[in-house]
Design a protein around this nucleic acid. Structure first.
Lengths: 185, 185
DNA sequence: TCGGGCATGTAAATAGTTACATGATTCA
DNA sequence: TGAATCATGTAACTATTTACATGCCCGA
């Protein structure tokens, strides 16, 4: 289970509250590991009880108080242990592929809208990634020379960019296939 | 939840037993939706109780009897309903990306072996996909002209191929980055 | 005063993983 | 005889999702 570890990494990059983590899981780290705030609060509680993370109550002005979590020595050890363990081939969950194969038993043309929707979502995400890359890594405001952490974050982002480009190209292929199968043409 | 639907699609493509489904989920449909036999038997039982699928006891020679499942009208309806519903952006789970970002707080070079392992796994899977493509779709034994079902299965397979190629290229990028970060060099 | 953002949670249901269990047949 | 394949399951645990819940502050 890597939610624990994803949270530890995020807290090492920047300590923060459960709420802040939940927002990071909607962007940034959330692009390769999703989690809702309910899950995050539960895991934070457990990791705190296990001594993996420390809490600090932070009073804020004009906002509710928050609990700022940071990684303790035990948490660092747990992360390190996980990093040195091999991980098994990741399990994929690709609804759209199931739908495409299922379309053979329904109306393939009915999927066109759905595929177009996905294509737009991927195009948006790609644009977002590319903007982030310029902002954080390749633009004039980016730190030079980058440190190891930045290099590693950048290569993960490049993976996201490559993934979105691959998906857009494939969804084009899917659309062309669906159009070819339409009876009326 | 798409496991139900993945099973329905697989049974429409070819009726079969829980055991056979479990093996399909190790190949073919399993490349974009994973499930273990325990999950499959549970879902089959539920779908049978709901009248989505029919069972037929099949006696076999030299093997235990099996229950052959096939999709009933109610199951087809359920699948059709799902196909016409939009699906939400899929949630990603990418352990390796978490590990790479985590490596900033450990020894990045220690990840090299792990990344190489993943690269080999993706290369194997790509070779497997390409062999399947020739066998089922582009080779001389393939049916010509292909029907809609084959076209759709082929486009899903092309997606798998594109994914594996993208991953191999990205893992090269990751390795180059990790090597660049090694202190000794 | 109403909606949205900040902040934290509980409860219930569903899904997924891991471990255990059984029993037949075939092949080395 | 022992391992591998075929075949089906139960039980316990862990993870994830969805729904419900509270309360403060700020700006329109």
């Amino acid at each position: 289970m890597a939610l624990d570890h994803a949270i530890l990494v995020s807290l090492l990059e920047q300590p923060g509250s459960g709420y802040e983590l939940a927002r990071r899981f909607e962007r940034s780290i959330g692009y390769f590991w999703t989690a809702t705030h309910q899950q995050i609060y539960r895991v934070l509680k457990r990791m705190e009880a296990d001594g993996w993370i420390d809490v600090r109550e932070v009073a804020q002005q004009g906002r509710p108080d928050k609990k700022e979590y940071s990684v303790a020595a035990l948490g660092r050890d747990a992360l390190s242990r996980w990093l040195h363990e091999p991980i098994q081939p990741e399990s994929v969950r690709h609804d759209l592929a199931v739908k495409i194969r299922g379309a053979a038993f329904d109306d393939p043309a009915a999927l066109i809208r759905e595929v177009e929707r996905h294509q737009r979502a991927h195009a948006d995400r790609l644009a977002h990634y590319l903007a982030g890359e310029v902002r954080d890594f390749t633009g004039p405001g980016a730190p030079a020379p980058p440190d190891a952490g930045q290099e590693l974050q950048h290569v993960v982002l490049r993976g996201g960019i490559a993934y979105e480009r691959m998906m857009l190209a494939w969804l084009d292929d899917v659309l062309a296939t669906l159009h070819r199968l339409r009876p009326e043409r």
